[in-house]
Amino acid sequence: MEGFLQRRDLPSMCRKATKANDKELQLFSNFSASSTRWKGLTFNTSYSLEAPILSKIYSLFPTTYVIGPLHALIESITSSSVSTSLLAEDRSALNWLDAQPYRSVIYVSFDSLARLTQEELLEFWHGFVNSGHRFLWVVRPNLVAEGTTAVEMVGLEERVRLVAWVP
């Protein structure tokens, strides 16, 4: 896929590599090189979410299937009570939203699959805070791979709302 994928499109283990002979980068490179022998590709996404890149992938791999986005936490296909919610919804976020000026809040959520490092969390935090905009950010308990999700909220309560999960 050389020519239309950029470094930022690669998994984090490849982006963090500092040398061409990095073990993880070589593993990913070998894995990718063998893809021309595969009978097909399956992605956890939908065409409506990623049409431009999928069109390019289809041109190289006509037997590409998009089957998502799949919810990672469905307990069992045979379960009689399947929940699509990770955590209890924080309905107080709706009251906070209703108290904000119309169309003034940015909603931030990394869904239920993404994981951030402590450094990435703080980088996003400072970017959102420094933007001066109001924002509602879903910071679920396992968002940060290692470390804490604690951030400094002093003086930001009027324009920032952090919740574990929203309806």
Results as ranks from 00 to 15, higher is better:
Arg161Glu: 05
Gly68Glu: 14
Arg115Leu: 06
Glu50Phe: 00
Leu113Asp: 10
Cys14Val: 13
Ser104Thr: 00
Tyr47Lys: 07
Ser34Met: 02
Arg161Lys: 15
Thr63Met: 12
Glu152Gly: 06
Lys39Tyr: 08
Ser48Thr: 12
Glu146Cys: 00
Asn95Gln: 12
Thr45Tyr: 10
Thr36Pro: 00
Phe43Glu: 08
Val163Asn: 07
Ile57Thr: 11
Met1Gln: 06
Trp38Lys: 13
His133Phe: 11
Ser55Ala: 10
Leu122Glu: 09
Leu94Ser: 10
Arg103Val: 04
Thr149Ala: 15
Met153Ala: 08
Gly3Cys: 05
Pro167Lys: 00
Asp90Glu: 15
Ser85Phe: 13
Thr42Leu: 15
Arg91Met: 14
Leu116Arg: 03
Arg115Ile: 05
Gly132Trp: 07
Thr18Gly: 15
Pro52Lys: 09
Phe61Asp: 00
Trp125Ile: 08
Glu119Asp: 12
Phe43Gly: 04
Glu157Thr: 07
Leu25Tyr: 10
Gly127Met: 02
Ser76Met: 08
Ser92Ala: 13
Ser32His: 10
Ser85Gln: 13
His126Ile: 02
Leu121Ser: 12
Arg15Val: 02
Arg8Gln: 15
Ala114Gly: 00
Arg91Ser: 14
Ser81Phe: 14
Val138Phe: 02
Glu119Arg: 14
Asn44Met: 10
Leu10Met: 15
Ser85Asp: 11
Arg140Val: 06
Arg161Met: 15
Thr64Arg: 05
Glu123Ile: 13
His126Asp: 07
Tyr102Ser: 14
Ser48Asn: 12
Glu120His: 12
Arg103Thr: 03
Ser12Leu: 13
Thr45Phe: 04
Tyr65Leu: 15
Phe128Thr: 08
Asn44Phe: 12
Glu24Ile: 10
Gln26Pro: 05
Asn142Trp: 02
Ser34Asn: 11
Asn44Gly: 07
Leu27Ser: 05
Pro52Asp: 11
Ile53Ser: 03
Gln6Tyr: 01
Ala51Pro: 06
Leu87Met: 12
Ala145Cys: 06
Asp90Met: 05
Leu49Lys: 03
Asn95Asp: 13
Val154Asp: 09
Ala72Cys: 10
Ile106Asn: 03
Met153Leu: 15
Leu162Gly: 01
Val163Ile: 14
Val144Arg: 03
Ser79Lys: 05
Ala17His: 09
Glu75Gln: 11
Glu50Pro: 07
Asp22Val: 01
Gly3Val: 01
Arg134Val: 04
Val138Asp: 04
Val144Lys: 08
Ser29Ile: 09
Pro167Asp: 14
Phe43Asp: 03
Tyr47Ala: 00
